[in-house]
């Protein structure tokens, strides 16, 4: 009642930040970077984002938004529609169930948790796509992609922590 319209808009803008960041990462990852073999190992940045925000602000990372982001990735990357959406939703569900374990733990514990999530996510994607294509896909590129994603995790997470502290305190 004692909120002005600007304060409300400000709050809304802050509250969509996690989803906006994730979507931006999805778009940025799709652009060509002309790095040798990069498109084969482009890190799964949305996975990092969904993992982080589901642990710290699950209220700002709703399932429909995750579905939309996954679908966006499917559309842009050319994999069958629904694959990334499903993987991200399952990651969301698993992390949401375990988030109390991660809260207040050290960064290394979080990283270790992410190793398991990445392994599960890529194994899942590999299985889904292999069964859709009715063949056994080569899992090696996915292993590379997973390793690059893990290596990027500390940097992106630092960015997320900063933005959370700066913009989402008390929102």
């Amino acid at each position: 009642m004692d909120f002005t319209i600007w304060q409300r808009l400000d709050t809304i803008a802050r509250r969509i930040l996690p989803v906006a960041i994730t979507l931006f990462l999805a778009v940025a990852a799709a652009a060509p970077f002309h790095v040798p073999a990069f498109s084969a190992v482009v890190p799964a940045v949305t996975l990092i984002s969904v993992y982080y925000w589901t642990i710290f602000r699950p209220d700002l990372m709703p399932a429909p938004a995750i579905f939309a982001i996954g679908l966006f990735q499917d559309i842009v990357s050319g994999v069958p529609l629904g694959v990334n959406a499903l993987v991200l939703l399952l990651v969301f569900a698993v992390v949401l169930g375990q988030r109390r374990f991660f809260l207040g733990k050290s960064f290394l514990v979080m990283w270790w948790g992410f190793v398991l999530i990445v392994a599960g996510a890529f194994a899942g994607e590999w299985m889904i796509l292999s069964s859709l294509e009715r063949t056994i896909l080569d899992p090696l590129p996915a292993a590379f992609q997973g390793a690059v994603t893990l290596a990027l995790f500390p940097f992106l997470t630092r960015l997320f922590i900063r933005s959370q502290q700066a913009l989402l305190r008390g929102v």
């Binding site: 990852a29 799709a30 652009a31 060509p32 990069f38 498109s39 084969a40 190992v41 482009v42 799964a44 990735q73 842009v76 990357s77 050319g78 994999v79 890529f122 994607e125 590999w126 796509l129 896909l137 590129p141 996915a142 590379f144 992609q145």
Partner: peptide
């Protein structure tokens, strides 16, 4: 112009 190449690990395509 090639504007997207995010095939990921399992698809090789360009936009």
């Amino acid at each position: 112009r090639v504007v997207g190449d995010a095939g990921g690990a399992f698809v090789r395509s360009l936009l």
